[in-house]
């Protein structure tokens, strides 16, 4: 068996950083001072992942207001629109409004990511999957939805190609939030294939806020190396029902509640998957980005994952 760990989304900002963002908005703190604080906190996020022996490392995405924003702000043909609910959370994102042909004319994440903080060959980059991005946008231009999805996929593929990421995660809540028609799932798969053809590293799709059964069995054929599952909403039978041949990301640490999973509980969940399903390799992770939790609770949850990894090593 091979078990490792990673994060699957943004980390929560500390109260100091939240205040800094508010002060910056009110004109009380300069952009430079804010960026300094973000960097300092990103260093801490990287440190705690390294200390807990997570395999690939994110920079915490502390400067992303939401998962779609860097792309909504920098891709041609898109404007930043009004607020909309982020799935079934008391959290909101700004809807990308599609006003022209979507194209990547300049780098998107170059200024956003703290590459230099992460050890060589361990950078994990998290972006929205093209179908989810398109589904959550307001389309004012494209006559056919699939043409939008393909153009978003082209733009994402071009961006990912230029990044030195070892591991790229496509976050895909729209694939599982409700059961989709087969045609829609196939569209999502074709869009990911556009990225796959231009990226050689480890490609992961992380599904959250919905059960994996909603996209099965089609998900088994997606051109990715890792399938991430939100175990806080997925019944175990969804994993048992199919022969899973890909690496499984098991999101068994609840990113939306403050009850702390013990290392024993996490290790048991992993052992159960390994013994009762066809899965051979696992990444332990939170169910989604830990951004829904207070900063200190998120850190305790990362330590729990780290301690579970130690326990499983002993096994």
């Amino acid at each position: 068996m091979k078990v490792s760990g990673y994060l699957v989304g943004p980390q929560p900002r500390s109260e100091v950083l939240m205040k800094a963002y508010r002060d910056h908005k009110k004109g009380k703190l300069t952009k430079q001072a804010l960026e300094g604080l973000v960097r300092k906190e990103a260093e801490e996020v990287v440190k705690i992942q390294l200390e807990n022996e997570l395999t690939v490392i994110t920079d915490g995405m502390l400067n992303w207001h939401d998962l779609l924003r860097p792309f909504a702000e920098r891709l041609n043909g898109i404007e930043v629109g009004g607020l909309a609910r982020w799935f079934d959370n008391n959290a909101f994102y700004k809807q990308p409004v599609i006003v022209g042909r979507v194209e990547r004319m300049k780098p998107i994440l170059e200024q956003m990511l703290f590459y230099d903080l992460i050890p060589p060959k361990r950078l994990k980059v998290i972006v929205p999957d093209p179908y989810t991005f398109s589904k959550l946008s307001v389309n004012k231009i494209y006559r056919k939805f699939e043409d939008l999805v393909y153009d978003v996929a082209e733009a994402m593929a071009e961006e990912i190609r230029t990044l030195s990421a070892t591991h790229v995660q496509l976050t895909a809540p729209s694939l599982v939030y409700e059961k989709l028609p087969k045609k829609e799932i196939e569209l999502a798969m074709e869009a990911i294939d556009i990225i796959r053809r231009r990226y050689d590293g480890v490609l992961c799709i992380h599904t959250c806020f919905g059960r994996i059964g909603n996209v099965m069995p089609e998900l088994l054929d997606f051109p990715v190396d890792v399938i991430g599952v939100d175990m806080t909403v997925t019944p175990f039978k969804d994993l048992k029902e199919y022969a899973l041949t890909k690496i499984l990301g098991i999101g068994c640490v609840d990113a939306r509640n403050t009850i702390i999973e013990t290392p024993d509980e996490i290790a048991s969940a992993v052992m159960k998957v390994l013994s009762e399903t066809s899965v051979k390799q696992i990444y332990i992770s939170p169910s989604s980005g830990l951004e829904f939790l207070p900063h200190n609770v998120a850190n305790v949850k990362i330590r729990s994952i780290g301690n579970a990894l130690k326990l499983l090593k002993e096994v």
């Binding site: 900002r13 939240m18 910056h24 908005k25 207001h65 607020l83 994102y93 700004k94 939790l293 609770v297």
Partner: peptide, 17 residues
């Protein structure tokens, strides 16, 4: 009360358990 949570951008609220 367990801490502050982001609702969107720099908007936050004090959340309880």
């Amino acid at each position: 009360f367990v801490g502050y949570i982001k609702v969107w951008d720099s908007e936050i609220f004090k959340k309880a358990a």
